Simulated assay, not measured.
Amino acid sequence: MRISDVVKRKGDTVITVRSDASVTDLLDLLAEHRIGAVVVSDDGQSVDGIVSERDIVRHLQKLGADVLGKPVSSIMTSEVATCAPEDELGALEHTMTELRIRHVPVVVDGQLKAIVSIGDVVKHRITDLQAERDQLSAYIQQ
């Protein structure tokens, strides 16, 4: 199974935010789209960073409410783990577990194409397991 299989099911829409946007603007995006992380991209195509709810909470604890007026660049993770559509889903699962991350941008030739969350991966696995169960049940009933 490949990353492209997950992207086909979930879609390739990616919400991005500019690095100079405020953390308050970022919070608005997260709430509006009901998502847990946003790719930071100043041109809408490259991956300059990623920022998650966890990043906001950690900086809020450290800096207090002052963090809300700061730019996203001050709290984003700059070294972003990415994957490619042809990568194996198992490798992505391993990366997410080892790095303790929940969101991984899908990149082709340096261009942002999609994002995969741990929820997307789990949903894909559950769907596949249910299909396998149904096939086994049908086989047994023959």
Rank of each mutant, 00 (worst) to 15 (best):
V116C: 09
I75A: 03
G44H: 04
L112V: 03
K123P: 01
V23D: 02
R18T: 10
I35N: 00
V106G: 04
V23N: 03
R125C: 08
Y139E: 13
R54N: 00
A65H: 11
L29T: 00
D66I: 11
L63T: 04
D48T: 06
S117G: 14
E88G: 13
D5T: 09
G119A: 14
I35Y: 05
V121H: 03
A114G: 06
L27R: 12
I56S: 01
V122F: 11
S46M: 05
L136V: 12
G11Y: 09
G36E: 02
L26Q: 05
V104W: 01
Q141W: 09
D55S: 06
T127Q: 14
G44S: 05
E79M: 10
L26V: 01
L27A: 12
A131K: 14
V104C: 05
E98C: 03
H124F: 15
V67K: 05
A81F: 11
A31T: 14
D120A: 07
R54M: 07
A114W: 06
Q142G: 15
L112M: 07
V107S: 04
I50G: 02
S41G: 07
T24V: 11
D134I: 09
D55F: 06
V108M: 08
L112W: 01
Q111V: 15
A81W: 04
V7W: 02
D28K: 15
V38T: 00
I101F: 09
G36R: 03
K8Q: 11
R34D: 15
S19H: 07
V104N: 05
V6K: 07
D25S: 12
Q61I: 13
A91K: 13
Q135G: 03
T82A: 10
G44N: 03
L68P: 06
